[in-house]
Design a protein around this nucleic acid. Structure first.
Lengths: 339, 339
DNA sequence: AGATTTTATGTTACCGATAACCGTAAGCGC
DNA sequence: GCGCTTACGGTTATCGGTAACATAAAATCT
């Protein structure tokens, strides 16, 4: 392993001089600098980050805690985050909690142990606040992405679930739908709460009744499991005038699960029932845009979140909290039809 | 920052004893162990990985170099890799080369600087061999995933591009197609070469002529760019008896780009032309399986690759090279039709 | 009981880089 | 010519762990 000592010996200077050349600090005669740079090139020296971290107390590494990178929405967030990180000289440690708070705790431990300089996290639920506090006890700045936490103080970057939800439901109402069922994510996740709030308020504003049998909750993840099946069956077995003519799925995975369940019941979208959801269904959207969706700017969420995080890392004393809520784009496509 | 010295003072032992308790090494009296564990718990101590790395010369971190995590195929590889990594006590540093060899070099530098214990890489091209050698000069084991490199010695885990290609083309021939165009990835990537080899051999075995105008190359990435447009237009402007009745797109992104281009020409799939490709188009496949594809076991590729890598890192089975080529599943769906 | 081994723990040095401090020679002012 | 500043670069100590060696007390053997 080549170290600054090897370089120092080869260039016939002290290790400190080598360090100064590498970091461009202090005054170095140009002839000395060249000698050192030559030696570095010849020996192919690359600094040892671990050693640097020990003295500098920073790792130039950011932790990225998501629920599942194989969900295209989070993959895009990850991509945006990684791009912004390298652009500012940081590395990214990734992780997948699967919406599981136990896994989340373990990853937080990992991040603390790795001494990451900051953490970008999409929390599994409001309970995550205690883990965030743990990070902060270790002086690790945290920026929330995609999901808010009640009472959290600090920066966050989210999509506007409330507004997106309002527009989606409004669109359905404009299309003549009065019986709209919401299949929501877990209510201990902020995006689910906001989507429900938007749903309820829009119904009220349009003088439509709110029925309990139109409200249900399932997990945000797992397309394959087909977990929406029971709910869909129950909805479709309601009496004729109660039967929903439209379903609002809280995210893309739930929507897919819903369509699958409908198909198994012999029902077609949008002929028999309309479906809307949050988040694009990539990459199909590029050639066959099917779903009427509220598309969130995932890459942006990752990018901006990382920028905020890096700013926090590099200037501990940022006083104002930055709360960015990005509006989703509503795309009206083929999964909804006029009644 | 809580260190072993703080724990040592609190528990009234030496730092070394604390270290031994943490690592479960050496003999410790149970009463001493309890004292130390108590102190660790009370102060919320978590070991500093950087300091550990300095002496142990290992970081418990793996580098994952992919072309683009927002491609679902690579996202799945990443997921499989990360799962296998945590299961064996490693962290994962992720990166996106965008098929760009310059970015790739930078990431290799980053991995060396971070002193990762091993690297899992989907190389951008055969040129990457020099970067792999650089990693090896630094004693960093490398496992290839998804793509092979001519002359590479070591472990790799790939999908069987040749076999998948043969089956895809055979399927088209069985459906009566004789004019099959291949829109391939860059020929300096092994998967592209293997897919072309499978294509050519299958044509020959079935006594079909090979035409140069059916062979073209574009980038594996970028759905949005619509980069296949020119090629598709050229293909569809061939004289009637030369015009292809089927297109073999080398991967899912190219296929999407192809379908988009066809649509813009007013052509429908599969009515006007059949299309097949490599890799699933997720997550649509779960509710509306459209593409006839050769689906590669992406998660498995990531998982097995990581397992091999960890074994190499921990110096087991250093002698034999493991070359795993996983067969793809052929799914015949709606993008192909009998002629 | 004294010698020898074992057990449990402490001491020292070091991993590779760098902050803080120190030293020397050249440059400058009067 | 003397004192002082500036430029350049070396020395030392330290970051938080741990390997290697040292040592004291307890256990075992002769």
């Amino acid at each position: 392993m080549v170290t600054i000592y090897d370089i120092a010996k080869k260039a016939d200077v002290s290790p400190m001089t080598v360090s100064r050349v590498i970091n461009n600090s202090g005054k170095i005669r140009s002839t000395t600098r060249e000698k050192v740079e030559q030696a570095i090139k010849e020996l192919g020296y690359i600094p040892n980050s671990a050693a640097r971290s020990l003295t500098s107390n920073q790792t130039k590494t950011l932790g990225l805690i998501l629920t599942d990178i194989s969900n295209p929405f989070f993959a895009k967030i990850a991509r945006g985050a990684e791009d912004a990180a390298v652009a500012t000289g940081y590395r990214v440690l990734m992780s997948n909690t699967d919406e599981d708070s136990v896994k989340e705790v373990n990853y937080i431990d990992m991040m603390i142990s790795a001494r990451v300089d900051g953490v970008l996290i999409a929390p599994t639920s409001d309970e995550t606040i205690s883990q965030i506090n743990r990070l902060r006890q270790h002086n690790i700045p945290v920026v929330l992405i995609d999901r808010m936490i009640e009472g959290f103080e600090g920066d966050y970057v989210l999509g506007d679930s409330y507004e997106g939800s309002r527009k989606l439901v409004k669109h359905l109402i404009d299309y003549g739908h009065h019986n709209i069922a919401l299949i929501n994510g877990p209510s201990n996740v902020s995006t689910a709460r906001e989507r429900q709030r938007g749903y309820l308020e829009t119904l009220k504003l349009n003088d439509l009744a709110v029925h309990d049998h139109y409200l249900s909750e399932i997990d945000f993840k797992s397309v394959q499991a087909g977990s929406a099946k029971d709910i869909v069956e129950q909805l479709m077995s309601l009496e004729k005038d109660k039967k929903p003519t439209a379903i609002f799925a809280a995210n893309n995975f739930i929507a897919i699960s819903v369509i699958k369940a409908l198909k198994e019941l012999g029902l077609n979208v949008p002929e028999d029932i309309s479906v809307v959801c949050f988040d694009e269904v990539e990459p199909v959207v590029y050639f066959d845009p099917f779903f009427t969706v509220a598309a969130q700017p995932a890459t942006e969420i990752g990018r901006i979140g990382t920028q905020f995080l890096v700013e926090r890392v590099e200037h501990q004393n940022i006083n104002q909290e930055r709360k960015v809520v990005l509006p989703p784009d509503i795309f009206i496509r083929k999964s909804t039809r006029r009644l």
